[in-house]
Each structure stands twice: as structure tokens, then as C-alpha cells.
Design a binder for these strands. Structure first.
Lengths: 261, 261
DNA sequence: CGACAAATTGACCCAGATCAAGGACGGTGG
DNA sequence: CCACCGTCCTTGATCTGGGTCAATTTGTCG
């Protein structure tokens, strides 16, 4: 309910510096920020933490800032006329939010914190002017980030367009795993902050199906899942599932030997 | 088969100028190009026309240029390990191709002409340096174009994730219609250069389903379709279908009047 | 005109949606 | 600390949209 850009306005949290930011090593602008205390750093607003369920901005809000995720987890979704939501992505530390608003000057999706999270905001116009004038490397990094997101999205189309339910979930898990790894966390065990409902919506499946699939992957010995905690036991196996491998293996029930054998 | 960046190298077609380009009015750099004969214009390479089936670049090719579509129609797709293709988009005049390669310096999808088409190429590094130094408006327009593409893609997720087959096709037709309109062509009647197979793949459906759906939409009096030629008869009706409206109306068979009426 | 690819149409069936009940958690208040 | 409640998750039973297989039909191009 807590609307949107409101967050951007209650800036009194300026005491936080980039120096201890966990996302610093792969932040859009951190590298420059540490070396030369450039004028860019004055554009960064360290917002105060957001609670689970709070929205960073709503679809249709006026675009003003880009947001860099410092910690936590967000989901983005678009809402159609009838109010139906489609989850379009999950976002972790160092991801950039709000790029969709650059062209239309309105955010075209809404973003919600899935757990206690924090972001830095970056007034886009100031950022643009400043980075174009004084530090073009930063502007380039933005473009690279975008290019990278497009790569991710096109692969998601493969998932939604061509894969079966079990493959979709396996892909989803490996994708999260990879992103965790990229952030220096364990690729084998992590927390899934999002609800089953969100995963289902994101993958274009019913919640019940997702639930059954978690069970099935577990029966196949590929993962161990308990609510939000997930451990990947057999990454190769998961890759094999995506490639169309054993679609119905049960680990504990090998086929009984028969006389025919 | 005709590989890739090869096209970029056979540049002897420099005699073509932007002045008569059909895509000029909404080209990434045309506006500047006409006013001041900026140094940007020297970076634009008017490639010679491509034949149907020819590839602009392949997945994995080294990234060097962005391409602006002058005329024609392209499809982009990604290829997985097993060689399966997923169509990720269709592209018309003024669209920009190759953005996906900026980050990784490799094109991450392949692009193929669906009919005789032509493009301009733009060496990205030169373009970047030049536009950052002398004309930042252009660089901004690139970012806007990207932002715009992301908007399109997120909506596509809605289509693939939540919609039923008939809704997907209706959405697809209206999307093409809108883009034709944006380019100054008829929104009500146009040519679909892509094969049914490509549409099916793009929408995550079977070819047979697409075929049946074209028929169904025709029976409902919403469109008239003959192979590659399509006329939208009832745009509101199509919107209604997307919203979940009449899922099985037959136009020529109204319910017979009964005594109960 | 013949041959090959694209599109259509029909018949059948299964993955996954939907409907309907529980069960397990997490937060709140006593 | 426990009891209550609402929400999220799981599990089972049933139904159906659309995938798959197979057979024509229609274009298209040499």
C-alpha cells in the first residue's frame, strides 16, 4: 500500500556510505565512487530499508530514479486492466530497477519487496547529465546492464514458450542458483523469498503444479526443499531435466526385476 | 547459411543516403543526420539488401555493430544446446537489432530476414565514442529504445505466462497491428511475413493450434485471414477476446429463439 | 507440370488446470 | 507461553485445452 516514489522523498538516511555496502563490488557506480569521490556519489541516495510487502514504485508512477538494490529481494510485475498480475522478474542485490521507465517517463511495472530490503536511488536526469559529462564509463555500464537484462529475458521466453512444467521449475532453480553464485553466495543452498504463488505466476503455472513439482524433484533426488529453504543436490541432474531427460524417474523405486529381464 | 557479420563487410553500397530512407522519420540517428551532417553519418553503413532466409548475424558471433532496420521484416531467435530454436521477436523498420550483444560482446541470438530486407549498420564502439563526445542526444535515444524494448518484452511475458491460446493469438495480431500503425501503415490490413511455424513457436503453441485459431477468429467474424494476408475486422472484438471475452462464439449461429424468451 | 514445403483438418490423449480438502506455518493477542 | 486465526502450502480427484500423430490440401518454385 505504501506508495511508490514516496520512498524516494524521505531521504534522511544520507549517513550510510557506499564503503560498507555489500553490493559494492558489482554496483553500477561503486568502483568510481571509491576511487575518486566523484560528483556521482552525491547523486546516490541511500534509502532507508523497506519492509516486506512494501512497494518501491507502482505501475504508472512518474519515473524519476533508477534504483540499485543494496540487499534483499524484490519482485516486479505488470498489472492488466482487470487487475491481474503477471510477475515479470525477481531481483537481488546489484540489480537495477526502473529502467523500463526511461522511455515513457512512467514506470511500466510495479516493484515490491519480498523481504526486508534496501536500495539506493539515483535521480536519472542528474545521473545522465553528470555521467555523460564527467564519467562516461558509468553510462556505459548502465547500457551493459540493460543488454544483460535483455539476454536474461530472451532466455526466459525459451522457458515459457517451449519448456514443460518440470523443465521450467528446474530452469528457475538453476537460474536463481547462478545468480546467488554471482553474488558470492552458495549456489547449492539458498533461500527462496518469494511465495509459491509468485513462482507459479512467474513460470505460467498453477500453484498446485509448482507444489507437486517441488515434490517430484525431491523424489528424484535432485533437490531438497522445505518451504523457502532449498538445497540443490544434483545440479547435473537438473540440467538433464531441462534438456528433456528423465521425465518421471523415481529414485527410491527402481523397476522390480522380472523374469523377462 | 550466409553467415553473419560477413554482411557487414561487403560495404560498397555507400551511395545510398539517408535522405530517401523510408525509416528516416523515426530512425535512431536520422533527425540529427539531416540537420547537421554530423560525423555520425559517416558511421552509418547502408548495407545492401538481404534476401529472405539470410542471416544478419548468428548466435555467438562477435558483436561489432548495431543494426537499424530500413525495410523488411526479421525474426530473432535463440538456439539451445540441442539446436532447438525459440523465436524471441519479430522486427520491422526502425527497430534496432544487436543490443543484446553490447554486454557480452557476442550476439546472444540470431537474426534472419523473413523477406527481402535492408539494414544500416553502426559500428558500436565508434558510435559510442562519437555520440558521447559530440551528440549525447543520440546516446539517449538508444537508451530509450532499449527501455521501450524492455516494456514490450515484459508484456510478452504476460502473454506467454497467463493467456490462453486464443488470447495469445489475438494479442499477437493487435501487437503487429499497432506496430504497423506506428510506422504509418494500415492497422487493419497487413502482411504477416512470418510462417505459421514461427508464430506458433513465438507464442509457445503448436502450428496446428495456430492454424485452428486463425480459423476460429475468422468464424467469430473478428478477422479475415488468407495465409500471409490478414485483415482485422473487429479490433474491439479482439480486445474483448484478450480480456477473456467470448471464448467460443460462432458468428453465423446465433442462439435460436425459444418460448422461454 | 511435378515435387516439396507450408498449411489445414481430424482423431485421440495427456499434462497440467481447476475444484475441493486438509495441513503447516507465522503473527497476534491474551 | 500457548491458543487462535489467516495465509500459504500440500495433496487428491477430476476435467479439458491444446499437444501429438496422421492424412490431406494448398501453395510455391524449379
Amino acid at each position: 500500500m505504501e506508495s511508490a516514489t514516496a520512498v524516494a522523498k524521505l531521504n534522511g538516511a544520507k549517513q550510510i556510505t557506499c564503503n560498507y555496502c555489500l553490493a559494492r563490488k558489482s554496483c553500477l557506480i561503486s568502483t568510481l565512487n571509491t576511487n575518486e569521490n566523484s560528483e556521482l556519489s552525491s547523486l546516490i541516495n541511500h534509502e532507508k530499508p523497506m519492509m516486506k510487502g512494501q512497494r518501491l514504485f507502482l505501475q504508472g508512477d512518474n519515473f524519476q530514479s533508477l534504483y540499485l538494490i543494496r540487499s534483499g529481494c524484490f519482485k516486479s510485475c505488470i498489472v492488466d486492466e482487470s487487475g491481474e498480475r503477471q510477475v515479470t522478474g525477481f531481483h537481488f542485490s546489484t540489480d537495477i530497477l526502473g529502467i523500463d521507465g526511461i522511455d515513457s517517463r512512467k514506470y511500466t511495472c510495479e516493484v515490491e519487496a519480498l523481504e526486508t530490503s534496501s536500495v539506493c536511488s539515483l535521480d536519472f536526469d542528474c545521473f545522465k547529465d553528470s555521467s555523460l559529462k564527467t564519467n562516461q564509463k558509468v553510462y556505459n555500464r548502465l547500457l551493459c546492464a540493460v543488454s544483460c537484462m535483455m539476454f536474461r529475458e530472451s532466455h526466459l521466453m525459451m522457458v515459457l514458450g517451449k519448456m514443460k512444467a518440470e523443465q521450467r521449475l528446474a530452469h528457475f532453480l538453476l537460474d536463481i542458483s547462478q545468480r546467488m553464485h554471482d553474488r558470492g553466495e552458495s549456489a547449492h543452498e539458498f533461500r527462496l523469498s518469494m511465495a509459491r504463488y509468485d513462482i507459479a505466476n512467474y513460470l505460467g503455472l498453477a500453484v498446485e503444479t509448482v507444489s507437486r513439482l517441488f515434490k517430484r524433484l525431491e523424489e528424484q533426488g535432485l533437490i531438497v526443499a522445505n518451504r523457502h529453504r532449498v538445497r540443490l543436490m544434483d545440479m547435473d541432474g537438473l540440467h538433464y531435466v531441462i534438456a528433456g531427460g528423465y521425465l518421471d524417474r523415481r529414485v527410491e523405486k527402481p523397476l522390480p526385476l522380472t523374469a523377462a529381464g
